[in-house]
């Protein structure tokens, strides 16, 4: 079994089925093509996307359906085609695709999830792509604190 150096869990063995391939990298990380999805009992429901290229790079993500059970996709046909999916209709989250929202923790400890531009993983081929959705009600900084009102501030 191959192993990799992870940022959060030291050296970890992983199965080939855990690797996902971003053919175009992610925005601002275009050279990062291969990640390993790591889900550990102690940190569930967080799914870590650990770069295979850079041990210092790990994104924390959470399934969009976990945050919002009624989450609906509105992905552009060209993004679906790039993922090897049927571009004539929206894929079903949790069945054909895994939909992961990348989590950001700010310096003040406030955390948010990017539901506007989720990472889609084709569950058949493990091809992945961060898709920027159009005409969607979701924010790129959906707050993870329930008691706080959703903020509509700038996305950075």
């Amino acid at each position: 079994m191959p192993s990799l150096q992870t940022f959060h869990f030291g050296l970890l063995e992983y199965a080939e089925e855990q690797t996902i391939q971003f053919d175009e990298g992610l925005p601002a990380f275009e050279r990062e093509r291969r990640f390993v999805a790591i889900e550990q009992p102690a940190t569930a429901p967080i799914i870590f996307l650990q770069s295979l290229l850079n041990p210092g790079l790990a994104f924390m993500t959470v399934p969009a359906l976990f945050l919002l059970p009624g989450y609906q996709l509105n992905v552009a046909p060209e993004d679906l085609t790039a993922l090897g999916l049927n571009s004539a209709r929206q894929p079903q989250p949790g069945h054909e695709v895994l939909v992961l929202a990348i989590i950001t923790v700010n310096a003040d400890g406030a955390a948010s999830a990017n539901l506007l531009a989720p990472v889609l993983v084709n569950l058949d081929t493990r091809q992945a792509r961060q898709v920027i959705q159009l005409d969607t009600p979701y924010a790129c900084n959906h707050p993870l604190e329930q008691e706080l009102a959703p903020e509509q501030g700038p996305c950075s």
Binding site: F7, H8, F29, A44
Partner: peptide
Amino acid sequence: QAQLQNLAAARQVTPETIAGLV
């Protein structure tokens, strides 16, 4: 916007932050 959000998300976090988030 996605680039900026990803750069912010890639900042390394401590085990305590992760525990709080979990």
